[in-house]
Computed example of a mutant assay.
Amino acid sequence: MIEIVRSNDLVLIGFLQSLLENANIPVLVADRHMSALEPMIGAFPARILVPEDHAAQARRLIGEVGYGAELRDA
């Protein structure tokens, strides 16, 4: 699994998860519950992980909807 996005914005995480799932890209959201428990300090951001063989497609899709700045470096 490859981390492609890390954020404390749970709305953004939910949107991106839905976007990727609708494109049939397997998604794992890690640390979602820790991020929700302590959102103000930002110490535990949620992370979107996808299989390595889907990473390029996921990155392209996220960029196409205008959230390319949220992507982690490859």
Rank of each mutant, 00 (worst) to 15 (best):
I2T: 12
H54G: 08
G66R: 05
S35E: 05
G63P: 04
L49D: 06
D73V: 06
R72I: 09
Q57C: 14
L12W: 00
S7W: 00
L28E: 15
M40R: 15
L49N: 08
R32P: 00
A56C: 07
I48Y: 01
A56Q: 12
I4Y: 09
L37V: 06
R59I: 04
S7K: 00
V50M: 03
G42E: 04
R47K: 14
S18L: 10
I4K: 06
G63V: 06
I48W: 03
E64Y: 04
A23S: 11
I48E: 02
G66N: 07
G68T: 11
N24W: 08
L19Y: 04
L10Y: 00
A46M: 02
A46T: 02
M34T: 12
A58Q: 01
G42C: 05
A23K: 08
L16R: 02
P51N: 13
Q57A: 15
P51I: 11
E38F: 15
L37H: 06
G14E: 03
E21I: 04
V65Q: 03
S7M: 00
Q17G: 12
A23M: 08
V50I: 02
H54I: 05
V5T: 00
R6N: 08
V11C: 06
N22Q: 12
E3H: 09
E52Q: 14
M34D: 14
Q57F: 12
M1S: 14
A46S: 07
G66F: 04
V11D: 03
D9V: 00
L71E: 04
N24M: 11
L12T: 02
A36V: 00
E52G: 14
A69C: 09
L20F: 05
Q17K: 15
L20N: 07
E64A: 10
L12R: 04
V29R: 07
D9A: 04
V65M: 05
L19E: 03
A55L: 06
S18Q: 10
V65F: 08
V65E: 01
Q57D: 14
A55I: 02
L19D: 00
M40Q: 15
A69T: 10
V50K: 01
D31W: 02
F44M: 12
R72W: 06
G63E: 11
A23N: 11
E70T: 15
D73Q: 13
E70H: 12
L12S: 01
V11Q: 09
E3L: 06
A43L: 13
A56G: 11
Q57E: 15
R60P: 12
G66S: 08
R59V: 07
S7G: 01
I62C: 11
E64N: 11
R60A: 14
I4G: 09
F44D: 15
D73T: 12
I2F: 13
D53N: 13
E52P: 05
N22H: 12
Q17Y: 07
R72P: 00
G42R: 04
V27I: 01
G68H: 09
E3Y: 07
L71K: 02
A58K: 01
R59C: 09
L12V: 03
D9E: 05
S7D: 01
S7T: 00
N8S: 15
R59H: 10
N24D: 15
L61Y: 09
R59W: 04
